[in-house]
Amino acid sequence: MQIAVYGSSLLSSYWNGAATYYRGLLGAMARRGHGIVFFEPDAFGRQQNRDIAPPDWAKIVVYEATPEGVRDVLGQAGDADIIVKCSGVGVFDDELLDGILVNGRAGAVRVFLDVDAPATLAELRQNEAHALHAALPALDLVLTYGGGDPVMRAYAGFGARACVPIYNALDPATHHPVMRDPAYEATLSLLANRLPDREARIEEFFLRPAASLPGQSFLLGGSGWHDKPMPANVRAIGHVPTAAHNVLNVSARAVLNVARDSMAEVGFSPATRVFEAAGAGACLITDFWNGIELFLEAGSEILVARDGQDVVEHLRTLTAERARSIGEAARARILAGHTYDQRAVLLETVLAGAIAVRRDQPGRT
């Protein structure tokens, strides 16, 4: 298959949490022999903050974030078998969505890849003029990187022909155990950009525990925290490039995952950070969300907290030996059932099915 993807960025994780997902999933598809072209805008300083070089398994097209630049790249879908518009490109999202429906060859499969389905569905409920309302009946397929049955049912209710979750996963070549670094040592570390729909949960699950444990050290990575008041034992280090994620994950006693509000409410939405940390063999503490057991077993492969006090109790009783045991068990579980190579097998099957449906309906445009 030849696959054309319009997304936020594959080259930069700067203000772009989806980068790891794109790299892992599309790289796995390329290893299975599929051609990948990724179109990304020059926006939000991402091109000035690249953390990987253009990979040899994909053609990357960087375009100007202007109406003219968008029109130009939409015309480059060419002979692609699959044309994908990702959510959250950040600029000209509606124009890109409309554009994939009228550009490319008539028989191409048109796909919307939603990397924040709970938030997108909330927008659809609140805004009858949302571009997806008109686009969904014409799209062949909606893919999401989380959400499970609740998201699938919701998208069907809005008129999607089909909706299939392709969950986040681990790329073992990228995220794996490394040597610890004293510069990243902490009792608890968290890697998360400052976002309005997650900040209150981070206050509860990270900053409140830090204030309750003044003798312990806390490390916060991610953009946007420079002016946030924090306890004295919290060290905010700003944006952490992908190449440093492994050492950050292995150098702390435990690593915290905090879901965004909408993802926690819907559940079945493990963040990329979960798989990155597990792949490095880190001991994970996560806020509670439905569906955790589909990926990791609470108590033996991950620690679950329903509030900040639970985080405090986990940290008070977590020995280095138990943390190591939990991290090793998590890594084994993820390697056995949740790698991007395994996700690519599912995605390949789903896309082949969509192509077959297209062929059986030659009159569709």
Rank of each mutant, 00 (worst) to 15 (best):
364 R>T: 10
44 F>Y: 12
17 G>C: 07
362 P>G: 10
134 A>S: 13
156 A>Q: 07
239 H>A: 14
14 Y>I: 05
258 V>R: 02
245 H>K: 07
365 T>D: 11
211 A>R: 12
42 D>K: 08
205 F>P: 06
157 G>F: 08
74 L>A: 09
89 V>H: 07
70 V>R: 13
277 A>H: 05
69 G>S: 05
342 Q>F: 13
173 A>H: 13
319 T>E: 11
260 R>V: 09
222 G>F: 01
129 A>C: 14
296 L>M: 06
168 N>K: 01
169 A>C: 08
295 F>D: 00
194 R>G: 03
316 R>D: 04
17 G>P: 08
73 V>E: 10
363 G>L: 15
210 A>I: 04
205 F>R: 06
298 A>G: 15
56 D>E: 14
106 A>K: 15
255 V>S: 00
262 S>K: 12
113 L>D: 13
327 G>C: 01
295 F>Y: 06
234 V>T: 01
344 A>E: 03
326 I>C: 02
341 D>G: 12
26 L>D: 01
344 A>V: 14
257 N>Y: 00
61 V>F: 07
184 Y>W: 10
355 I>P: 03
18 A>R: 04
66 T>D: 09
35 G>V: 08
300 S>R: 15
335 L>P: 01
2 Q>Y: 13
59 K>T: 15
247 V>P: 02
256 L>E: 03
123 E>I: 02
57 W>A: 12
247 V>G: 03
293 E>G: 10
176 H>Q: 12
162 A>E: 14
166 I>A: 04
199 E>S: 04
251 S>N: 08
181 D>G: 07
73 V>L: 08
333 R>A: 00
186 A>I: 04
24 G>N: 09
98 D>A: 14
306 R>D: 10
252 A>Q: 06
217 S>H: 13
224 G>V: 08
81 D>L: 12
65 A>C: 08
215 G>T: 12
278 A>H: 01
170 L>E: 05
105 R>L: 13
69 G>D: 05
359 R>G: 08
93 D>G: 09
145 Y>L: 15
337 G>Y: 03
354 A>Q: 08
122 A>G: 07
12 S>W: 03
282 A>Q: 05
339 T>G: 00
320 A>P: 09
193 N>L: 01
187 T>A: 04
6 Y>P: 06
59 K>W: 12
28 A>H: 11
227 D>N: 14
311 V>A: 01
301 E>C: 00
257 N>V: 15
70 V>N: 10
175 H>Q: 11
94 D>C: 09
180 R>W: 05
92 F>H: 12
27 G>H: 01
234 V>N: 06
38 F>T: 06
169 A>W: 02
